[in-house]
Design a protein around this nucleic acid. Sequence first.
DNA 1: GCAAATTTTGACCGATTGGACAAACGTTAG
DNA 2: CTAACGTTTGTCCAATCGGTCAAAATTTGC
Lengths: 217, 217
Amino acid sequence: MVGGVTMETAAPRRRTRIQQEKRELILEAALEVFSANGFRGSTIDQIAEAAGMSKPNLLYYFRRKEDIHTTLMQRLLDTWLAPLRELDDIGDPLTELRSYIRRKLEMARDYPRESRLFANEILQGAPRIMPLIEGELKSLVEEKVEVIKGWMRAGKIAETDPWHLIFSIWATTQHYADFDVQVRAVLGTDRGGEGRFEDAARFLEHLYLQGLRVRQG
Amino acid sequence: MVGGVTMETAAPRRRTRIQQEKRELILEAALEVFSANGFRGSTIDQIAEAAGMSKPNLLYYFRRKEDIHTTLMQRLLDTWLAPLRELDDIGDPLTELRSYIRRKLEMARDYPRESRLFANEILQGAPRIMPLIEGELKSLVEEKVEVIKGWMRAGKIAETDPWHLIFSIWATTQHYADFDVQVRAVLGTDRGGEGRFEDAARFLEHLYLQGLRVRQG
DNA sequence: GCAAATTTTGACCGATTGGACAAACGTTAG
DNA sequence: CTAACGTTTGTCCAATCGGTCAAAATTTGC
């Protein structure tokens, strides 16, 4: 087959319709299983069952368990960093930051599995996505740190550490996905319903808007 | 032995010197292994090797893998909640909160393994410590929420949601233990040294003190 | 010093795991 | 219809897992 007229350009083979569909099915199932049990805590059998297929069948689409995980992580990082990418120079700084916080909190509410998958990976020392952290993520943060520094220099928001500002927004918002069971258990049945995200949004908005407001005098 | 003069009061047998020492050794090793790999990701062999003994020898002191984990978690929760227990009515509210934040951040710096062990357990849905969360932890938080509410009623700090204030303090401080590799990678070699905890402390102090200050006007 | 109790070890077991493989099955283009 | 290709499955394997057990080595109480 080497040198054949219809030969594909090296590695990334074109996929058939079935392959595309089944791979999506597997990734969805794997997200469910991995986020609940971690990488080592999840078995191929669990993922295969969640995807409604046999283990050898699953291994026909992903040759190794790790391949599923890395594919998942690569996709994840893109959507996960989207809110930060939108943080832009135009518009009022406090409004921009408030929008960013709200978007991050909405992601924690609507995509908790993605958040937990990511948290699991970082907790284990990020053995499989360290390059992405040191590359894509780091440079994006550096870019946005400059934006925030600009706001501070212009006297639009209080002078604080932009890096730790970003960290604290990550921490406070993702907390509601990663530590969800604890949050719900502590709040109890009455306060722990769906309204908890509204309460959290209100609190965080207050904390950050007043905390970053420029102090007069 | 039953009915002997020196009989122990039922279940909790007194331990020999060797048992006490070896159990401590095992728990220390297990903390290292569990916090790095999670419960399912850790093997008894790993723990045994880290403790410098053979697997059957380890199983002589803890009959099941889960026993090690639960023992570790029970001890952990006590020391972990100590800073919150110290949060007291006496003294200036903002000073009390600042001390609490500082203590929590110091724990993240000095006991990152404990933090990660806890995070791992919560991430997996807290299957082994849910009772402690719903019991001891919940009632402690409820108690401290009342303290904070008192401060708010007295006009000492801004009126916000005390539950989410506590959550956000947990999130922002533990972040530096649980997501340590990410924090260090993003900050880079120059800013990611030991000084990062000082920077974090300064930022969090600013954020919370100004964020909770009573607004005039 | 010695007997009883405690501690340590090597060998072993059944269950589960990630993955390989060839055969069987289905689909599709000509 | 049929040959070629893509898909699915049952079976199997070696490695690893948590845990058992009896025997050996050691410590301890007297």
